[in-house]
């Protein structure tokens, strides 16, 4: 029994650094800055099912979303909740939106989340770079 206990402790000690390393790869690194190129790649792979830059598809066109009033993209039919929204899409607002859209506009229709803050920051930086041109 003691021997088995010792083996168990050994496994825990061995596994602890591995678990820590794994956790670190899945958690955001707060020292990282936003990467526009990575944001573009993420936009294409994570947002591209519904969104294009210049065409309304399942979701509205997003080239000029930064600085735009929420729920007001031309010719896009929004949910009732989003149509009633009146805030302006700032980078901070988009960060919050991508983290949990329901917290920003209850009753919205998107529901998609980017779980990692770094991913959100990169996508928002990409969208902000488009709006700046």
């Amino acid at each position: 029994m003691m021997q088995r206990h010792g083996v168990l402790v050994g496994w825990v000690l061995l596994a602890a650094p591995l678990l820590t390393a794994t956790a670190q790869t899945l958690l955001p690194d707060p020292t990282m800055s936003a990467d526009v190129a990575r944001g573009q790649a993420l936009f294409e792979s994570r947002c591209g099912a519904c969104h294009s830059l210049d065409a309304n598809r399942v979701g509205p066109a997003l080239r000029f979303v930064v600085g735009r009033t929420a729920g007001k993209a031309r010719d896009y039919v929004y949910s009732g909740a989003m149509a009633r929204a009146s805030h302006t899409w700032s980078s901070d607002k988009l960060m919050a939106w991508l983290g949990n859209p329901e917290n920003v506009v209850p009753g919205q229709a998107m529901n998609y989340r980017l779980d990692l803050p770094q991913d959100r920051a990169d996508v928002v930086a990409y969208l902000a770079s488009l709006a700046a041109h």
Binding site: R46, G48, A49, C50, Y112
Partner: peptide
Amino acid sequence: ELGAINAYLGV
């Protein structure tokens, strides 16, 4: 298809 994968997983 890639977008759809990520969309479904994301919701």
